[in-house]
Design a protein around this nucleic acid. Structure first.
Lengths: 136, 136
DNA sequence: GTCCTTGCAAAGCGTTTGCACAGAA
DNA sequence: TTCTGTGCAAACGCTTTGCAAGGAC
């Protein structure tokens, strides 16, 4: 049985304020790797007094707590996703959309890496997504 | 025999102005994935009238021409490197330094990627570098 | 003359900081 | 009262844009 988001926040020592619940809901129900502005614009409809600062505050808290991940893709702006089972990303070079794809493993024959301690492997595939290929 | 940087620029249709040669030299002789500010500060000693705008202009030209690559690692700021044989990167989570490492290949059994056309695979390893491990 | 390179100044955009107010404990 | 969550306003850092001056051709 799936835990409610409220419980999930509590389990991580985060007091479940309305704003925090809404941000987490949005991330979990809309797996589009939104940036701060998208989250703000969407939630602002429900929470008219919401400020961008608060969105930043909440996301920072979530990332520090480890329930949300900041995804680095292009440059300039941070994008966010709830932590799921491990997966990789595909970035479409035409429309810029970021897709979740099954985990791509590496052939880690880490020769030439003596002395380095590897904690994480990030794989990003780039190319053209199906919908951009059809527009041709 | 290795081509001079001047010839390399010419071959790519870039007229080899002093500024452009110096930027390319810097990138090729200092494989530290510098950001714009590092390049600017360094070259400003030799070229006192240099402006950051020009550094941006030159880098943009190089990236569009395909002789330099923009590396996306953390967020916020772009980092640059001359195009070498394919390799991967290792980012130290302690000191933030970015290392060139031998190419890490993926096990590309791209199931679940039907319809996607993959052009590039970016692998980034994260962990702790040898020098940060010793400081303990 | 025209085209290209350079660079100042300003604007733009994402993000962070300082501070203050209101509500909860 | 103290602590916590929120949010305005300003500052900040990286990047882009507009435009003009000087040099190359």
């Amino acid at each position: 049985m799936k835990k409610s988001h409220v419980e999930l926040l509590k389990d991580h020592g985060i007091s479940p304020s309305l704003t925090r619940i809404e941000v987490y809901n949005y991330l979990d129900y809309n797996r589009v790797h939104p940036n701060v502005d998208m989250i703000y614009k969407k939630l602002n409809k429900k929470l008219p007094t919401l400020s961008k600062t608060t969105v930043y505050n909440v996301l920072k808290l979530f990332v520090e707590t480890g329930i949300v991940k900041e995804v680095t893709v292009g440059s300039q702006e941070a994008r966010y996703e709830v932590i799921l089972e491990e997966h990789s990303h595909f970035k479409c070079e035409v429309c810029g959309k970021l897709y979740d794809i099954p985990l791509v493993k590496t052939e880690h024959n880490f020769s030439g890496l003596e002395g380095f301690s590897v904690n994480e492997e990030v794989v990003l595939l780039k190319g053209i997504c199906p919908s951009c290929q059809q527009k041709h």
